[in-house]
Design a protein around this nucleic acid. Structure first.
Lengths: 103, 103
DNA sequence: CCATCATTTAGAAGATTATCTAAATATTTA
DNA sequence: TAAATATTTAGATAATCTTCTAAATGATGG
């Protein structure tokens, strides 16, 4: 959770995530889109990788980065805990059986 | 968005949010639960307030802090953008009218 | 094999952050 | 009004973070 929020606490890194939403990119392509040196972008990519938000695959000379949104569910779950339980009528009955007296 | 992620990038502040989930608390009560001085906690509360994640109300000598989860939707929306659009069948027809040929 | 291209690693400088102590403000109570 | 309580503000220090330049690594093409 810590490395996750840390990775997200930077607008450059958040922009990178948004860019990768539209498809995988090489480190160089990503760096080109920012007014920042390649080593700096490389470092940002490293933090995103540590947080498991992106994955990288080397293909020859290039390294392709892609979103890894499996962690996303973890984040969403953390946020959802604050959503007050809205008393929404369930669409289906999950349990079949005799109704309780209070039901 | 910046102040939001900044506020969330600290485990003490995240814990404070989780504590407030169970009900409002005074600054002092919050500080008691951490192994940290009151001024430090006061600073954390200030950052949470700047991010609009908490609100504070002064009652006499005490200042009560409470969750303000209206911003939460903003965060959730940011995360949802990464969720690939699942082709889920809509539960209800949103538009009433003549069906299109392709429908 | 050497030059070039893509990317990372290393190391340094400046900015930001977390935390502390000391002091200030504001409220209650004796 | 003075003392006590709750909280914040101010200022300092140490740690962490962002970014840079220079150099290293690894793959490709003549």
């Amino acid at each position: 959770m810590n490395s996750l929020f840390k990775a997200l606490n930077d607008s450059t890194r958040r922009e990178i995530l948004e860019m990768l939403k539209d498809g995988d990119m090489t480190a160089g392509d990503i760096a080109e889109r920012f007014d920042m040196t390649k080593p700096s972008i490389s470092h940002h990519l490293d933090l995103l990788k540590q947080a498991d938000l992106v994955a990288s695959v080397k293909k020859g000379q290039f390294i392709y980065y892609s979103l890894n949104m499996t962690v996303m569910d973890e984040i969403l779950a953390w946020f959802i805990q604050f959503k007050p339980a809205t008393a929404e009528k369930p669409r289906i009955r999950l349990q079949v059986g005799p109704r309780s007296i209070t039901e």
